[in-house]
C-alpha cells in the first residue's frame, strides 16, 4: 500500500508519478496499491500524515512505515528506502541486495 503526495500538476509531480509507476511495474508486479494525493486539493491528508515535502512517498503497509522524498529518480534508493525487495529477489534471497 503506497501513497504518493504531490503538489498539483507540477513537472516534478509528473516525473515522480511516472518514476513510481515504472518502479512498481518492474519490481512489484501486482503486489501494490498506489494512491496519488494532490496536497493542494487535500491538504488535510498531508496534515494528518505530517508531510512536509513533495513529492513524498509513504509506504503504509506492510510495516515498517517508510518514507521517501524526492522525484524518485533513483530506483535503488527508492527500493532501499521502502525496504521492499525487488520481485526477482523476493523469494530466493533473504538478504537485501543491489542488482
Amino acid at each position: 500500500m503506497l501513497r504518493l503526495f504531490v503538489t498539483g500538476t507540477s513537472p516534478r509531480a509528473e516525473v515522480a508519478v511516472a518514476n513510481l509507476r515504472r518502479i512498481c511495474e518492474q519490481e512489484l508486479q501486482g503486489r501494490y496499491e498506489l494512491q496519488v494525493i494532490d496536497v493542494l486539493e487535500q491538504p488535510q491528508l498531508a496534515e494528518d500524515e505530517k508531510v512536509l515535502a513533495t513529492p513524498t512517498l509513504i509506504k503504509q503497509l506492510p510495516p515498517p512505515l517508510r518514507r521517501v522524498i524526492g522525484d524518485l529518480s533513483d530506483k535503488d534508493k527508492v527500493l532501499l528506502g521502502l525496504e521492499v525487495r525487488p520481485a526477482a529477489l523476493a523469494d530466493s534471497d533473504p538478504k537485501p541486495e543491489k542488482k
Binding site: 503538489t7 515522480a16 498531508a46 515535502a53 513533495t54 517508510r66 522524498i69 524526492g70 529518480s73 534508493k77
Partner: peptide, 11 residues
C-alpha cells in the same frame, strides 16, 4: 526518510 531526487516543500 530517504531522499531520492529533487523535492520541494509544497506539502
Amino acid at each position: 526518510i530517504v531522499e531520492s531526487g529533487g523535492f520541494d516543500l509544497g506539502a
